[in-house]
């Protein structure tokens, strides 16, 4: 037998796993033939939608799911009013909020992290605040945000801001504080001015650590936006999930879960590409 490469083996295993999942799914969602218990009044059963016909589960079969995915993805941007928008529109709302909160957090966290990383005094002064605020679930801020900002969508952005802030702040400070002394000594002997030192020496030296922080922040932001939108409602993928649950459309909920995963993966690999670009080998 011909030897397979590592990625060929892994690919085969992945496809095999998918086949097993689909098979189990198919078996689990097989219509239960004559699924009416004998002790139930047939008239009552008929009223409940059972009776002589087969009782279809709300959980879709793989084929039905595939059909839904196809239908939804072939028309992602339709807008039939507040409760019926295409998946593309919902995802765009969520992404816009995540991006807004994330950019705001970066604007605050990276300069602040620079300051903390550069100064022991700053570090020790701000450390208790960071340690206290970091473990707070971002959703705990929601009532406070709604009360002070008085706007649901802006509150969601604030929640994303607060959850993206900490990993970026801590990683930036850590990266800046751990720039090799040699490089700083070189810039000192070359009499490099502070601004040039910050942008040409410290920033590139700390960039891989900073980007790791941004990647973690983005991951957390994408987790939190779903929960935040379930609370604030109106638009977004989180609202879509909750709305479809209220509609008892498990198919749509499943579809939304799948899309959340796809977008999250795409965001992470985007940061993976950026990380590669700023990485350096010593």
């Amino acid at each position: 037998m011909k030897k397979l490469t590592l990625s060929q083996k892994a690919g085969l295993l992945s496809v095999g796993l998918l086949a097993v999942i689909l098979l189990v799914w198919q078996l689990a969602t097989l219509p239960e033939a004559k699924g009416v218990a004998a002790d139930v009044d047939p008239e009552y059963a008929a009223l409940m939608g059972g009776g002589t016909s087969t009782a279809a589960s709300s959980f879709p079969t793989p084929a039905a799911m595939a059909q839904t995915v196809w239908d939804k993805l072939s028309d992602p941007f339709y807008d039939n009013g507040p409760n019926d928008k295409g998946i593309g529109i919902q995802l765009a709302y969520s992404l816009a909020r995540v991006l807004g909160g994330f950019v705001l957090a970066a604007v605050v966290a990276i300069p602040l992290g620079f300051a903390i990383g550069n100064s022991r005094v700053f570090y020790q002064a701000l450390n208790p605040y960071v340690q206290l605020l970091k473990p707070i679930s971002p959703l705990a801020w929601m009532p406070l945000a709604l009360y002070t900002i008085k706007d649901a969508s802006a509150s969601a952005i604030f929640v994303i801001f607060i959850c993206s802030l900490w990993p970026m702040l801590i990683n930036t400070a850590h990266g800046v504080a751990n720039v090799r002394k040699d490089w700083l000594d070189v810039s000192r002997t070359l009499e490099v001015n502070p601004l040039r030192k910050a942008f040409r020496v410290i920033l590139p030296a700390a960039a891989p650590t900073i980007l790791t922080g941004m990647r973690i922040s983005m991951g957390i932001a994408w987790l939190v936006i779903v929960a935040a939108e379930m609370l604030v409602g109106g638009t977004g993928i989180g609202y879509f999930v909750w709305n479809e649950w209220n509609n008892l459309s498990i198919t749509n909920v499943l579809f939304a879960i799948f899309m959340i995963g796809v977008v999250g993966m795409a965001l992470d690999s985007l940061f993976g590409v950026l990380s590669k670009r700023v990485a350096y080998q010593e």
Binding site: D182, W183, D185, V186, T189, P204, A205, Q281
Partner: peptide
């Protein structure tokens, strides 16, 4: 203090690896 009048060659070469 440090000055451009005195060049330093470090044992660890101290090159910036991203450049």
């Amino acid at each position: 203090g440090p000055s451009l009048d005195r060049g330093v060659i470090f044992q660890s070469h101290a090159l910036m690896p991203w450049l």
